[in-house]
């Protein structure tokens, strides 16, 4: 039997990048310590703040909700949950009840916003229209841009001080690699533990950024937290290729993901000068903050013959 390097109980995990074995209790403690360290080192949350958490029902966002709920309780703060229903049949319908259930268990206010009510079409419908029109854009483009749009707007309407997402170490290193491959300096620069672009944007925080995805999976299993474990049916192409590449790199060379993140953190301060400044204004169609005439969401909607329907997402008493 393999034993925990710290307390001698039965090990549940070999953290190869640190050369230690961990038992269930030490594993849980370690994840919670890393979460708190990320918050304290990067000043992600201040006492008394209202934090909106983007909760899909998947392991990362649900873990983020539980951890932030416990953290904020001790800091006179408050957590609210926002779930975006993109409308992905056979995928999102499995995770939505779990987002709601976890918010209920914690006694956290929960708000649901959907592509269908905001934009008049589900992601599945948009993908079909886009294919017919031959836009050449993949589903992740629509989903990513529009989900961020709704989360920011909903968080702002809920008067949240910060918007927390469940991005983990794997997500961050994949995004770093993707932006290298695409030579996208602006997006690369945005990959920070806290990113507050301009007025109209709720600062986004990523408290799980230094925790590998596998460890978050282990954490929810050990804690008995109910989550949705499924792969998005639209996941394909370069994103999955980079994910698989990084996982095989990590399997053969433990600590690679942390080294990619650390190297990026060394480089990031120098990127500021290379990223052009932009002036913010309101989107001509929906009024949301943007640097161009139309925000990216309205531009994408226009391309498939749609327009944003709801100006306000959260109505009084809506939950």
């Amino acid at each position: 039997m393999l034993r925990c390097s710290f307390c001698g109980r039965r090990a549940v995990y070999h953290r190869r990048y640190a050369g230690v074995f961990l038992c269930d209790r030490c594993m849980i403690k370690s994840v919670e310590r890393r979460f708190r360290r990320a918050i304290n080192q990067n000043k992600l949350v201040n006492p008394g703040e209202r934090i909106a958490v983007a909760v899909s029902g998947g392991k990362d966002s649900v873990a983020c909700l539980h951890l932030l709920h416990n953290y904020c309780r001790g800091k006179r703060g408050e957590v609210v949950a926002i779930t975006v229903d993109e409308g992905i049949k056979g995928y999102r319908d499995g995770s939505l009840p779990l987002a709601r259930e976890n918010a209920e268990i914690l006694g956290v206010e929960h708000h649901l916003v959907s592509f269908k009510s905001a934009f008049g079409a589900t992601l599945d419908e948009m993908v079909r229209i886009a294919a017919k029109r031959g836009t050449g854009l993949n589903p992740c483009t629509y989903c990513g841009v529009m989900r961020r749009h709704l989360l920011n707007q909903a968080a702002r309407e809920l008067r949240a001080d910060k918007l927390a997402t469940g991005h983990n170490l794997d997500d961050e290193t994949q995004a770093i690699m993707l932006n290298y491959v695409r030579a996208d300096l602006s997006r690369l620069y945005r990959l920070a533990p806290i990113y507050a672009p301009r007025e109209g944007f709720v600062p986004r925080i990523k408290p799980l950024r230094e925790i590998p995805e596998k460890e978050i999976g282990l954490y929810v299993l050990l804690k008995g937290i109910k989550v949705h474990l499924a792969v998005c049916p639209y996941a394909s192409g370069i994103h999955t290729e980079i994910r698989d590449f990084l996982n095989s790199l990590e399997a053969n060379h433990p600590n690679s993901k942390f080294m990619i993140l650390r190297m990026f953190e060394e480089i990031r301060p120098y990127l500021k000068e290379a990223v052009p400044e932009f002036e913010m204004r309101g989107c001509e169609r929906c009024g949301e903050p943007t640097s161009t005439r139309l925000c990216k969401t309205c531009e994408l909607l226009q391309g498939i013959g749609l327009a944003k329907r709801r100006k306000k997402l959260i109505s009084d008493g809506d939950s």
Binding site: M1, L2, R10, A11, V12, Y13, H14, F21, D24, G58, K59, D170, D171, Q174, E213, K214, I216, G217, L218, L221, L222, L229, A230, V231, C232, A235, H239, T240, R243, N247
Partner: peptide, 30 residues
Amino acid sequence: VVRLNGRIVAEEEPLKKGDLVEILPVVTGG
């Protein structure tokens, strides 16, 4: 994450005859 005979274990555990190894895919990405 791997469960060996119902218990989550580290992957360096050795196997013996009749063991049940359950493999839980936890990395779903995105």
